[in-house]
Structures are given as C-alpha cells and as structure tokens.
C-alpha cells in the first residue's frame, strides 16, 4: 500500500515537473537583461504620447481662454 502511494506520488510529481518544463517562456530575454530595453522603448513611447496629449490639452485651454475673453 505504501509502495503504491509512493509510486503515485512520484508519478504525479514527475507530471508536475514535466508540465512546468514544457512551457517555454522568454527566460533568456529576462536573464540577460534585454527585457529592460523593451521596457525603456515602451516607456519612451508612452511618455511621448502623454506629452503630446498634454500639449494639445494646454493649447485648447489657451484657445478657450481667448474665445472666452472676446465675449
């Protein structure tokens, strides 16, 4: 009985290990630190986009004030 239990446990354990090894992830990209380049590129784009939206916001603010003053 004990042997059987031990065997099934090992079997299950090996299945779990197998399942974890099978899934490929970008581990090299992370280990050599190149992922930080990707993050930096995305952050640059995001900050650029936000800056652009912010400038449009400011411009509309100014025009709103100008038109409001005329009235």
């Amino acid at each position: 009985m004990n042997k059987l239990l031990l065997m099934t446990m090992f079997l299950l354990f090996s299945v779990v290990v197998f399942a974890q090894q099978k899934v490929e992830m970008a581990d090299t990209l992370r280990s050599n630190g190149k992922i930080y380049t990707v993050v930096a590129v995305c952050l640059t784009i995001l900050i650029g986009l936000f800056l652009y939206v912010f400038l449009i916001d400011k411009k509309i603010n100014r025009i709103e004030k100008e038109i409001g003053d005329k009235k």
Binding site: Q20, K22, V23, E24, M25, A26, I35, V38, V39, C42, L43, L46, I47, F50, F54, D57
Partner: peptide, 28 residues
C-alpha cells in the same frame, strides 16, 4: 490625468517585468 499617466507607466513596467503563470500555448 496624472493618475492615468502613473498607472500606465506602472502597467508597462510591471506588465513586462512581473512574473506571469507559465501556461502552454499562451506562453509570454
């Protein structure tokens, strides 16, 4: 607006760097 900016910065940093479940087919 600032909140949106900060949350999206956080999304990109944590979204690329944090651990995710290792699932078949989906992978990264």
């Amino acid at each position: 607006k600032i909140l949106s900016f900060l949350l999206l910065i956080y999304t990109i940093i944590a979204g690329f760097l944090c651990n995710v479940p290792r699932l078949p087919i989906l992978n990264e």
